[in-house]
């Protein structure tokens, strides 16, 4: 440790406390490494470990998932089968096949449906909370939206399995209510809070001067929102939607319970589908460690990891774009 550091840290903001502890004589300066100095070092290193741990964990998880799945990708996987066939039969007694097409399409289909339901509602809610609602209404709405985010996903899945299943059968006369529509509605509700909250932040980031200028020119409330605030916040809003996509894409339990978990290329929203995440959740627990099936599931994990990584990266870049640009 270079000696200048001691002087630095004891004069740095800790004087008040050091002086109070040691009396008015400037004892901390005389002893150099006093209790406050150690405390400062300790807190600094704890915070450093906390900060770095996120990177360590992300890299560690990626290394682990890759290590488990790489053998399958290199040796067993038939790329044409994996991306081109729907026959996901890892435990077949005749010949195991690993066609993930139906799982990829199922995940994309359910996520897409979820966005169709939740984007209009979330952005609408954000605009209402951010631009129109006042006082108590606004605060109540914000709390309720955050409460929606607090419902555990297994509870959503349970609602899908019991309430929604019967509701969809009775309302639409479909053969079974565990389908993409059910999962899409539930995922939409689950993704809505994060989208609403982030979209509202994006609207809040638009300087009031823009609104005042527009109002001064005689614009109505809606004209201000539509012509001025939304264009100014568009990057943040897009980022909010992308984070919602990431949320829906990575959700597991609720999709497992509500989608029907059925290997099938959907032709209508009322078809049962199966998601990548749900497949891993349902099968990994009983698969022998190190088997082809086990490694194939980790390959699905790599696929999920890569896709969610790019969705989140895109969201981050888009949101950053709005800050950097303005």
């Amino acid at each position: 440790m270079p000696p200048e550091m001691d002087g630095n840290s004891s004069t740095y903001g800790l004087e008040g406390k050091g002086a109070a502890l040691r009396g008015p004589e400037g004892a901390s300066r005389r002893y150099g490494r006093d209790w406050a100095w150690w405390q400062d070092k300790l807190v600094a290193s704890v915070v450093f470990v906390g900060g770095v741990s996120a990177i360590v964990f992300v890299l560690g998880i990626f290394a682990f998932v890759t290590r488990e799945g790489l053998g399958f990708i290199l040796h067993t996987m038939d790329v044409r089968e994996f991306f081109g066939s729907i026959a996901w039969r890892p435990t077949s007694l005749i010949r195991p096949t690993y066609g993930a097409l139906a799982l990829i399409v199922g995940t994309a289909f359910v996520t897409g449906l979820a966005m169709v339901f939740s984007v209009p509602f979330s952005l609408g809610a954000a605009i209402f909370i951010g631009e129109f609602a006042k006082g108590r209404v606004r605060e109540t709405l914000k709390i309720l939206v955050e409460l929606l985010a607090a419902v555990p996903s297994v509870v959503w899945g349970f609602i899908g399995m019991t309430v929604m299943n019967e509701f969809l059968i009775r309302t639409f006369g479909v053969p079974v209510g565990l389908n993409a529509m059910n999962a899409g509605l539930i995922l939409g509700l689950m993704a809505a809070p994060i989208m609403t909250t982030i979209a509202e932040d994006a609207l809040k980031a638009v300087p009031d001067g823009y609104r005042e200028a527009a109002e001064a020119m005689g614009a109505t409330r809606w004209q201000v929102v539509w012509r001025v605030v939304l264009p100014a916040a568009k990057n943040g809003l897009l980022g909010a939607v992308l984070l919602g996509v990431g949320r829906a894409f990575g959700e597991t339990m609720a999709v497992l319970m509500a989608s029907g978990h059925s290997i099938h290329l959907p032709t209508s929203p009322f078809d049962s589908v199966r998601a990548l995440t749900a497949t891993i959740a349902a099968e990994l627990g009983e698969t022998a460690v190190g088997s082809d099936h086990y490694r194939a599931l980790f390959t699905l994990g790599i696929l999920l990891f890569v896709v969610t990584f790019f969705i989140n990266l895109a969201a981050d870049l888009v949101v950053r774009g709005v800050r950097g640009g303005r």
Binding site: R89, S92, L93, A102, L256, H261, S262, R274
Partner: peptide
């Protein structure tokens, strides 16, 4: 034999 694809595979 294999199962027909498209069954609802519950847990």
């Amino acid at each position: 034999n294999d199962y027909k694809l498209g069954s609802l595979d519950l847990h």
